[in-house]
């Protein structure tokens, strides 16, 4: 009886075994890259909003403090999104007939909130709290980037668990004086390592890695 497998199949089988390993590796790599790509994490992708609200103009241009609009960021888990009334405090007089502000005026007239598209949204099984981060000297720009240069809001961080943990392992690397938390021009390089260690001691910074810190 003639051989079913031609001798060349020896090489072919070796190549395909190796190939399968290689293929699987490539697939895992591709999947991982996809998970970390900006397509999936939405990092650096500006979101469309019902009104093209610009942090660049309002924060950089007018010098408004974050707390003028994100009022609850110091006391609660939720930073707060300003009600339409906050916009109207100025826009009932400034740019009061501009067509791009019509949705704002409509919202005020009808008492229906503007539906902003969320930019940062953790899954519900992860717990995040702004107040503790603010109180412990972690600044807005550390996690949200230079919002003062954003004409529309985008994410600068993945918000993945490994990102949270990277800081929670060694929070003192990102600490700044409490009174500079809202300062968009803060330069992390302006503190020496000793000064940072000093602040970390003063604020009693702990490394919180317990799963139940964020999954409760």
């Amino acid at each position: 009886m003639a051989q079913i497998f031609h001798p060349s199949f020896n090489t072919l089988s070796k190549v395909s075994i190796f190939g399968a390993v290689f293929f699987l590796g490539a697939a895992v790599f591709a999947w991982d890259s996809l998970l970390r790509s900006s397509y999936n994490t939405q990092v650096d992708v500006a979101r469309e909003q019902p009104v093209p609200f610009s942090h660049k103009h309002h924060v950089q241009g007018l010098g408004l403090d974050c707390r003028f609009c994100h009022t609850s960021v110091e006391e609660s888990a939720f930073a707060g999104i300003p009600p339409t009334k906050t916009c109207m405090g100025c826009h009932s007089l400034v740019w009061k007939d501009a067509p791009i502000l019509e949705p704002v005026r409509e919202s005020y007239r009808s008492d229906r909130p503007i539906e902003w598209t969320r930019v940062h949204d953790l899954p519900d099984f992860a717990y995040f709290d702004h107040s503790i981060h603010v109180a412990k000297g972690i600044g807005c720009t550390t996690c949200h980037g230079q919002v003062n240069e954003m004409p529309l809001m985008w994410r600068t961080e993945t918000l993945n668990m490994d990102w949270c943990l990277a800081c929670h392992r060694n929070p003192s690397a990102n600490v700044r004086p409490r009174e500079r938390v809202f300062d968009v021009d803060w330069d992390p390089a302006s503190l020496t390592d000793e000064e940072r260690a000093g602040l970390a001691a003063q604020y009693h910074l702990k490394s919180m890695l317990n799963c139940s810190t964020c999954h409760r």
């Binding site: 939720f78 707060g80 999104i81 909130p113 539906e115 899954p123 519900d124 099984f125």
Partner: peptide, 12 residues
């Protein structure tokens, strides 16, 4: 799991 049956602040 990602969206659990509870409301976050300002949710619809």
């Amino acid at each position: 799991m990602h969206d659990q049956p509870r409301f976050e602040p300002l949710e619809r």
